[in-house]
Design a protein around this nucleic acid. Structure first.
Length: 483
RNA sequence: GGCGCUAUCGUCUAACGGUUAGGACGGAGCCCUCUCAAGGCUUAAAUACGGGUUCGAUUCCCGUUAGCGCUACCA
């Protein structure tokens, strides 16, 4: 039985990189009819926050990719300690009574690789037991085999055969001096206990994997298959960080900006993975059907957002925007309408579902983000049009007099016409001809009068949805503006 | 510093050792058209560099350079 897990640590919001890892794990599980496990890796009590946990769940819920099992590491500490003790009992770990470094440690790193604190590895078991019994705090460290050195190997599904000498692996901690397991210990203990068959995670763990292989071996656990994913980078080549790159790195930003979760999933999935058949616009089911570890790329991928984050729409990767627009257009009218309605209502407009459904076909091909409905269809939502420049009413190659002539004719014609596409089309074209105007010269003043701006959905459909009463009132107002 | 990983258009990517190096987004242009979109067509744009191996390297090997990761009692 195939089992995969996504193991976020609740130390911040849900990052797009984490979301990508989650998505690819999920797709792999679904593709193989396996089990998707969510495990909260909260062994760092210093940095964990409930707020972070809440926001991570919020992000995951929005993605709408349900998982099958859920665990929290802090509730499984006994297991982690037990496994650490078992490794210690076999003599494959030792107590280190050296006080923990205060603050940052990289200064010592600048000189050369640190492998272990001198002397402590050799401490006799008797002395170690005595000091521990006396209540002296210690960290439990893995005794990495050194003489002779060994080459640790594993086969990564993405990066291939990996090998590293134990001469380059330091005696990493299993248990902290407060008794809490470290990430390596907790993660491996849980992976073993939960019978995780495939560990699919970020490439930042590729070199950590040698330590994990050592732990699995020492614990006598079955070795899972590893698959590391290339990292997601910012356009400046550095890794994505909230502090440096702002809200574009947070999943909820995409949600709030009006992305469809299926489009967002489609986009993230394509970062570092390809179905190799030139297809990019994919439904959730197609993603499940096509996803495979073989399609995962090895080079880091950059999320091509605008660095100084210009307008909200410009700050996202253009491909993400395009995919979103495509997914929006692929949605049946009723479904799109249902997604648009809450956006419109949250903006303070009291629109009925029926009205929204009539408006939807007019905006569907004109919005890239759900929120765009507010700027594209604003004139449907209000009774009174916001002020606009009367000069806008003047058509191409025309003047104010022509606009006035067109509008007066429109007022007369529209009053007598049924507000349906075909009759409106026929009546207004006939009117234009009668006045000796080009169709555009007739339509443009009406469009501006009715929509308050030059760029808008097609005129006849717009009039039909808006209704005779509102349309005539707005034309009347436009005539006043010109007169 | 040590160790590891990576390197194809601006970005995401494709290419049994043999292709005019393909697609997509974005850009430019044209068409369609009541405006805006959508759609259609066209176009510019890449194998980091240097050595090998080979009849032939984007592809295999080595080196250089660059980027990234790990090097915590963080995850």
């Amino acid at each position: 039985m195939l089992r995969v897990r996504f193991a976020p640590s609740p130390t911040g919001f849900l990052h797009v990189g984490s979301a990508r890892t989650f998505i690819q794990n999920w797709l792999y599980a679904r593709h193989n009819r396996g089990t998707m496990i969510l495990r909260v890796d909260d062994t760092d009590v210093e940095r964990n926050t409930e707020a972070s946990l809440t926001s991570i769940f919020e992000g995951l819920r929005w993605l709408d990719l349900p998982w099958d099992e859920q665990y929290r590491q802090s509730e499984r500490l006994a297991l982690h300690k037990q496994m650490a003790e078992a490794i210690f009992a076999k003599g494959m770990a030792y107590r280190d009574f050296t006080p923990a470094h205060e603050g940052d440690s990289p200064r010592s790193v600048a000189q050369g690789a640190w492998l272990f604190n001198p002397g402590v590895r050799e401490m006799s078991r008797e002395q170690s037991d005595r000091r521990a019994a006396a209540g002296e705090p210690f960290a439990l460290r893995f005794r990495v085999p050194r003489e002779p050195e060994r080459i640790i190997r594993f086969d990564d599904a993405v990066y291939g055969e990996q090998a590293k000498s134990t001469a380059d692996i330091e005696d990493f901690a299993l248990l902290r001096s407060d008794g809490m397991p470290t990430y390596h210990m907790a993660s491996c203990a849980d992976d073993a206990d939960l019978r995780i068959s495939h560990i699919i995670r970020g490439q930042d763990h590729l070199t950590n994997t040698f330590k994990h292989v050592l732990i699995f071996e020492a614990a006598g656990a079955a070795m899972p298959q590893f698959a590391h994913l290339p990292l997601l980078m910012a356009p400046d080549g550095t890794k994505l960080s909230k502090r440096k790159h702002g809200p574009v790195v947070s999943v909820t930003t995409y949600r709030d900006a009006g992305f469809l979760p299926e489009a967002f999933v489609n986009f993230l999935c394509l970062l570092g993975w390809s179905p190799k058949n030139d297809r990019e616009l994919l439904t959730r089911q197609e993603l499940i059907d096509l996803f495979s570890l073989e399609g995962i790329n090895r080079a880091n991928a950059v999320v091509n957002f605008k660095e100084p984050a210009a307008t909200p729409e410009e700050m996202f990767d253009p491909k993400a925007i395009w995919l979103n627009a495509e997914h929006i257009r692929a949605l049946p009218v009723e479904q799109l309408s249902a997604r648009l309605l809450p956006v419109v209502r949250e903006a303070g407009f009291d629109i009925s579902p029926e009205t929204m459904t009539r408006i939807t076909p007019l905006v569907r091909e004109r919005i890239k983000l759900l929120k765009d409905v507010l700027t594209v269809a604003d004139f449907f939502f209000v009774d009174q049009l916001p002020p606009y420049d009367p000069a806008e009413l003047v058509p191409q190659k025309g003047d104010a007099a022509m606009a006035l002539k067109a509008l007066k004719k429109a007022r007369e014609v529209l009053a007598a016409t049924e507000f349906k596409h075909d009759p409106l089309d026929a009546a207004l074209r006939a009117a234009a001809q009668e006045l000796g105007l080009k169709a555009g010269q007739m339509f443009q003043p009406i469009r501006v009068a009715v929509c308050g701006r030059k760029n808008a959905p097609p005129l006849f459909e717009t009039l039909e949805v808006l209704g005779k009463e509102k349309a005539l009132a707005r034309i009347e107002q436009a005539i006043q503006k010109l007169g």
